[in-house]
Design a protein around this nucleic acid. Structure first.
Lengths: 361, 361
DNA sequence: GTGAAAGCGCTAACAT
DNA sequence: ATGTTAGCGCTTTCAC
């Protein structure tokens, strides 16, 4: 194993020579294109195996496809995204496509940099997961390369979308808490500043779903929303604000699991516990939600199906760039765990009404 | 925004014509190469901006570099890897390099597929994080393209390595537990089957560090290792096995945080708690370890520095493929939290000796 | 059904 | 310092 690697890469010419055919023939076999006899296909495949030939994606990029799909992922830490990714790779497993992830896209300029980089590299299609960019930028990207946008509501003439029904998800949570007997159900949302995006973002949809569900249950008077961010810190601050209310909520619906972690932190700090004093629900059903010591009630988004659909739509659009855009909306499901329970009895005195959560029960 | 995108991409020829110079001049400016006057540089840059030109990576791949770095990541779910990735991207932020992640590499064939795909796409350098492939395959890859291997011990003549000192990390945990008064400290390890890899894998090093630390403390008689896997399930099963011992350990050192989650699960199921009955420590200081309800004592691996060093070494090796390989070993640090405490007093009766963990205290 | 040849956008010799 | 030009490895007309 020499440090220097002087040996030339095997090319299509080598394969053609070795198989005693033309380079055209090899190319046709590689792409399963029309115009090559079974005997020729066999001969060429044998040569490919014997020489260990692999097509050079860069060279292909100049004329045709690169068989590369780019997935833009805003935050690799978000434990919800791996499910989507699994769904994508599973659907692409028996194709010639290879998936690459563009990391570190926590903002509009970063998203633009990554999408441009993917286009520059001749990727055949892009999946944009929960992008925060202006819609105009998304449409620009989609006009250059087949694109599917995941986790962003709203139609577009140029790209397909796959989303989860966030309104329904919020409704599931509110319904669950109401069934347990809660009336004062508060919500912690991620504050959306940009007016052009507001209706398209999942966080806004969840807040909207919360409002609608409360109204539908005749709890309009109890609507109580705190605007922070979808972070642990945001959950902590939101909960502190809610705990300072004269009439404290008996349940908190956090717009994301990580927010719920901050809420639990704030409860602990105030000498309270879930669900004894206040019930807490999250959203996303992330891995840690199921851990024994946490056991957080949450909403599962069927990430695998989201990813699978995204990959399917992308392949369809690569095959026909002019097909009509499709919007797929999937249904979430509630996963009740141990942080939600009936509200403590009304004693007028706050504190541990129930005996508190069993540590790891 | 038409669905069809018929407009040709701006090429170096367009830029050259617009700036009234040769394509060579443009190429030189793009690569900051020698032989272009400041005036020419300015002219070319203006033309590039005006036309919105971006170099085509595929075309570049055929002659020179692609300015693309591939990072292979075995499991996107492992919450430890994002820190490494941040370190890599931070170091590369002010260069022309773009990072792409190869996902879904949970096994040797998958790793091979991803590394090959990266090579096919003309990537300029690779960072392989915690690969499980045979060393021979790693060296093959490294002989073709500049490579840095992260999280795998052992020297190689062809690639650089960056690791954390897992022996020292294990030692920190054992020392911490011994300081608290524990003597019966057990360890749950990830069972390594392949003999050629055994000394190189972090899990093996942690088990080794555990053994050495126990001996150094005169606790050789108390060494107790259960071999499972680094999964939640593995932790659960390992803990069940330990709880069935005649002489139960008073502390469990899990080789990874996720393993510790399984241990906590098993404790709960047995009506025990941490640290009241048994202290539990993990490894990796993953995000969820710090969550209030968990608060797991763990070992922090300085992932950001690992990534930064990997990127630095890779750039150096891209610049000079024949430089001598470097091994960087970083030092972990202990993060004590609430799952470790002095052992319960010896009453001869097992059960909650202390008052148990405070739920969210 | 098969192959010869042009050319994708760029870089690097090699002129000048 | 600047420009001319020959390919890099592949796909794709277009002859045969």
């Amino acid at each position: 194993m020499e440090p220097q690697a002087p040996r030339r890469r095997v090319t299509i010419v080598d394969v053609a020579r070795h198989a005693q055919v033309s380079t055209t023939a090899v190319s046709k076999v590689l792409r399963n294109a029309y115009g090559a006899s079974p005997e020729m296909r066999a001969k060429v495949r044998r040569a490919i195996d014997e020489l260990g030939y692999r097509p050079h994606a860069g060279a292909r990029a100049l004329r045709g496809q690169t068989y590369t799909i780019g997935v833009m992922l805003p935050d690799i830490r978000n434990p919800f995204f791996p499910d989507i990714l699994d769904g994508i790779t599973a659907r692409l497993a028996d194709t010639d496509y290879q998936v690459f992830l563009g990391p570190g896209c926590n903002g509009e300029p970063e998203e633009a940099r990554v999408t441009e980089a993917m286009i520059d590299r001749g990727m055949d299609g892009l999946v944009l997961i929960a992008p925060v960019s202006q819609r105009a930028h998304l449409e620009h990207v989609a006009s250059v390369v087949p694109t599917v946008v995941v986790g962003r509501h709203g139609h577009s003439p140029v790209y397909d979308t796959v989303t989860d029904d966030d309104v329904a998800g919020a409704s599931l949570v509110v319904g669950h808490l109401a069934d347990l007997g809660h009336r004062r159900i508060a919500h912690i949302e991620h504050h959306e500043t940009d007016p052009t995006r507001i209706a398209e973002m999942p966080n806004a949809q969840r807040a909207d779903g919360y409002r609608r569900a409360m109204r539908a249950l005749g709890l309009e008077e109890e609507i109580d929303i705190v605007s922070t961010t979808y972070t642990q810190q945001g959950g902590y601050e939101g909960a502190r604000e809610l705990l300072a209310r004269l009439r404290r909520p008996t349940a908190v619906f956090a717009g994301a699991d990580i927010v719920a972690m901050g809420v639990l932190e704030a409860l602990t700090e105030a000498g309270l516990s879930a669900p004894g004093d206040i019930s807490v629900a999250g959203y996303d059903n992330t891995t840690f939600a199921s851990f024994g010591p946490i056991s957080l009630t949450s909403v599962d988004q069927a990430g695998h199906e989201i990813g699978g659909n995204a990959a399917r739509l992308l392949l369809e659009r690569i095959a026909d760039r002019h097909k009509a855009p499709v919007q797929v909306k999937l249904s979430p499901s509630l996963v009740p765990r141990r942080t939600t329970a009936p509200p403590p009895e009304q004693t007028g005195i706050s504190g541990s009404g129930q005996r508190g959560v069993q540590p790891f029960g």
